[in-house]
């Protein structure tokens, strides 16, 4: 196989992910509505939560809507990644995963292509949300949208790899509901998506440490900084390391035979 064949396979996987996302328009709408509800309802109630508090990268106190927006970008990506891994479990159960696995391309390459393609698809609802968030006076600098792009893609790949690991571990489609309770909600709530880490520390030391150890916290911080044209090396370092570790684990964990061999007729 020559490098150009790898490129063709990536473009094919990317095209399929986009075609499927177009078919699943309700998924796009719900991906957009969920963070908007948080922004319009939840954030409105907590508008004064950060009164007088300066949260980096901002030099002065900001409205809660502005604070929470990167966290909500994170939740769009998080849900999209989980949805994508759910579809992998579905593909595996339905058998269509076999088509991918009987390709002559290395499986690790195909899995990485799928992660990146899924990450790129999640950009559509993310930027849709950021655009609507402008109506709520969340007005980052225009260049910030571009600067945040690699951070959002990195976050999406990291969470996609986590989803891939879950898809490898989960035996049945029905068990995926548990992921919401045991993975998505803890990742989201035990992070700096809703409250600054300083506020978490004031509330409870162990919650603070849980948030600090959560890679999603650092991904959200990376998005927050880049969206406002700043860069946080620690946030980047942790997110990048977590991404690489999770990709490696996902590739190692992935068992092509799982649930596809010896199924009853």
């Amino acid at each position: 196989m020559k490098p150009v064949h790898y490129l063709y396979s990536f473009s094919g996987i990317l095209a399929r992910e986009f075609q499927r996302s177009i078919q699943q328009r309700t998924r796009f709408v719900s991906a957009l509505v969920r963070p908007l509800l948080w922004l319009a309802v939840f954030a409105a109630g907590f508008r004064s939560a950060l009164e007088g508090v300066v949260v980096p990268p901002h030099a002065t106190p900001v409205d809660y809507e502005i604070y929470i927006t990167p966290g909500l970008v994170g939740i769009v990506v998080l849900f999209n990644s989980m949805q994508s891994s759910l579809s992998m479990v579905y593909d595996r159960e339905m058998g269509s995963m076999r088509v991918l696995l009987t390709s002559p391309m290395p499986r690790s390459w195909l899995l990485i292509c799928k992660l990146i393609a899924s990450a790129l698809v999640s950009l559509v609802p993310v930027y849709g949300f950021l655009l609507v968030a402008r109506l709520f006076d969340v007005l980052p600098p225009v260049q910030g949208y571009l600067a945040a792009l690699p951070a959002i893609v990195l976050t999406a790949v990291m969470l996609g790899a986590l989803g891939l690991i879950l898809a490898s571990v989960i035996e049945q489609l029905e068990n995926f509901a548990g992921v919401m309770n045991f993975v998505v909600f803890p990742l989201f709530f035990l992070s700096s998506a809703l409250y600054p880490l300083t506020a978490m520390r004031d509330a409870s030391e162990w919650i603070y440490w849980a948030c600090l150890l959560n890679p999603f916290t650092h991904a959200v911080e990376l998005i927050r900084h880049t969206l406002w044209l700043d860069f946080s090396p620690p946030a980047f370092g942790v997110t990048m390391t977590a991404t690489l570790v999770l990709i490696l684990t996902a590739v190692i964990c992935f068992d092509p035979a799982k649930k596809m061999i010896g199924r009853p007729r």
Binding site: I13, Q19, R20, S96, S103, M105
Partner: peptide
């Protein structure tokens, strides 16, 4: 069956062709 039911015939074939290089 391993076809993607929501995609067209040519989209299904295009996907397969691409992952074959």
């Amino acid at each position: 069956p391993t076809l993607d039911l929501d995609l067209s015939l040519s989209q299904n074939l295009a996907y397969h062709g691409a992952i074959q290089g």
